[in-house]
Simulated scan of single mutants.
Amino acid sequence: MGEIPFITVEGPIGVGKTSLAKAIAEAFQFQLLKEIVDENPFLGKFYEDIEEWSFQTEMFFLCNRYKQLEDIQKHFLHQHQPVVADYHIMKNMIFAQQTLKDSQYIKYVQIYDILTHDMPKPNIVIYLNATLPTLLKRIKMRGREIEKNIDPSYLAQLSSDYEEAIKTFKENNPQVTVLRYSGDELDFVKNKEHLEHIISDVKSSLLKRSSTI
Rank of each mutant, 00 (worst) to 15 (best):
L179G: 04
G2N: 10
K121A: 09
Q29S: 09
N191H: 11
T134E: 12
K67C: 04
T18H: 04
E39T: 04
V189F: 08
P12L: 09
K17W: 04
I114W: 04
L132E: 13
I36Q: 05
K34H: 01
A27L: 02
V83I: 10
E51K: 14
K101W: 00
Q97S: 03
K167G: 10
I146F: 13
S204N: 15
S200K: 15
M93P: 00
S54F: 03
I13C: 12
D151T: 07
P82V: 08
H88V: 01
L136A: 11
K190P: 06
I36A: 07
Y162R: 08
A27E: 09
R209S: 14
N173K: 08
T168M: 09
E35R: 01
T99W: 00
Y66A: 11
Q68F: 00
E39K: 10
E3W: 03
K137Y: 15
D161L: 09
K140T: 15
V202I: 15
S19W: 03
K34R: 10
S200G: 10
G44C: 06
R65V: 04
E52W: 02
A156Q: 12
M141Q: 15
E52Y: 06
K137F: 13
K34V: 05
G183K: 04
Q110W: 01
D71Q: 07
H197S: 10
N123Q: 11
E26S: 12
E52P: 03
P5V: 05
V37P: 00
L132G: 11
F169W: 06
S153R: 13
